[in-house]
Design a protein around this nucleic acid. Structure first.
Lengths: 239, 239
DNA sequence: TCCTGTCAATTGGACAGACCAATTTTCGCG
DNA sequence: CGCGAAAATTGGTCTGTCCAATTGACAGGA
């Protein structure tokens, strides 16, 4: 069938002139035709060279200025910004990046700590049984030397569901899904090991105790401690 | 000598119209006046509303588009991009029934307390000035006997933005948008009055003090106290 | 000679009006 | 009731014009 081919179709977005021009100029800057600090031709001149009107050229220049590539000085001219340090990439294209790992982490800390507090007060026997079972599976996986990451997700999502708050549980589910994306695999692989898996078991065991005791404060405290420790491990520049 | 004063001189950069307009529209988007997915007025209309020419407005729109805030569809209109920040992480819509007020409240408590903590550590002078200005507007509104609910939203959304966490700030924006819906008006009307408005001023003033002092712990504590008090007012069955 | 104020040229900033093209909406026909 | 053509709406682009800021040449005075 042709279904496979059809699936590859992309939505055609009519390229507006200003985008084409901006890309052209970006290329010229990248390949060194326009050196940082250099002055571009005057707007009227450049527009004629490119065969477009001055407003369209201006729109392209505005886009490039917003992207941080160029700089215009009234009454003087348009210049390629000189402070384009080598590593700086221009966000003109491919700017659809999701939230970074730190943002995800901070958000998860916020919602999971709150969810733990609520869950301690609201979880029923079934919830507790499911969490206990998940913890047991984790132990089995670790004993077999397997990474329990997937079971971690199940545990925390179930914990969120038990909070009986659809917003928080939905957010937790979504944040863990983001966390599973391959992009952050490398970051995790650096700090995760069988030892950290065992520490995770201890933490979740204590958390479960707090739930059994129906102690919201203790549950939140356990979760906060967990995130504080994880945060130091992942994001502290000490090592 | 006047050397000390001279040292404070800043290079004046004439703000071009498109920059001013872009900033205006950006604040309208960020404080929730223009909801993600919403359609902006037509270019001709918007230009007239702002008292500028269409080319200038178009330059502002192109800047916002380059910045990834809006999206234009030829022959249709200009739309606020729907995939901003935590709009996807906190799935509030698409369910048969929206989340109830208690769910909203618990979620807001979670994200706003976390955001306050981060903001205390990350807010810059501009953020603090904006929050101070918002608080001043609140005082004016209350003095005139007007309900400051809209300014409340602006204050808290700005506070969230200053946390520099797109997920949290997006969630706060969404949750406050939800709160503004007419469905919960009655609930609020029962417990809100000029006296509670004044209490809100005091709370936000103390919160601002914590931000000025760059004290994350104090900022979080103020926010938690606020939510605890509001929670008792709204949801306690005592009365 | 050197400084200084002035004036003209250059350049970007902004506006008005018009026309084209894509999209959506409306409405009449089958 | 469904469907296709016409009309209205909306963004895309162009032409032309005028204004404001900057620059640089130039003449005049210390």
């Amino acid at each position: 069938m042709a279904h496979d081919a059809l699936r590859r179709l992309k939505v055609v977005r009519p390229k507006r002139i200003y985008e084409q021009i901006a890309e052209q100029i970006e290329t010229l800057v990248r390949d060194g035709t326009f050196v940082p600090g250099a002055r571009l031709p005057a707007e009227r001149e450049l527009a004629e060279m490119l065969g477009i009107s001055r407003p369209s050229l201006r729109e392209a220049l505005i886009a490039l200025e917003t992207a941080g590539l160029i700089e215009t000085r009234i009454g003087d001219g348009t210049y390629v910004r000189a402070d384009l340090g080598g590593g700086r990439v221009f966000p003109l294209s491919g700017r659809d990046m999701g939230p970074g790992p730190l943002e995800q982490f901070e958000a998860r800390r916020a919602v999971e700590c709150a969810a733990a507090e609520l869950t301690a007060a609201r979880a029923d026997a079934e919830d507790r049984a499911a969490l206990t079972a998940s913890l047991a599976r984790m132990r089995t996986l670790i004993a077999a030397g397997t990474n329990p990451a997937d079971e971690h997700r199940i545990f925390h999502v179930r914990l969120g569901d038990a909070s009986r708050n659809g917003i928080l549980s939905g957010a937790i589910r979504e944040l863990w899904r983001l966390r599973q994306e391959p992009m952050w695999d490398l970051l995790r692989r650096k700090v995760e090991n069988p030892e950290s898996w065992h520490a995770g078991i201890h933490f979740r065991s204590r958390l479960l105790d707090a739930l059994e005791a129906r102690d919201p404060t203790a549950a939140r405290r356990e979760m906060e401690t967990h995130f504080d420790r994880a945060g130091r491990t992942y994001f502290d520049p000490k090592e």
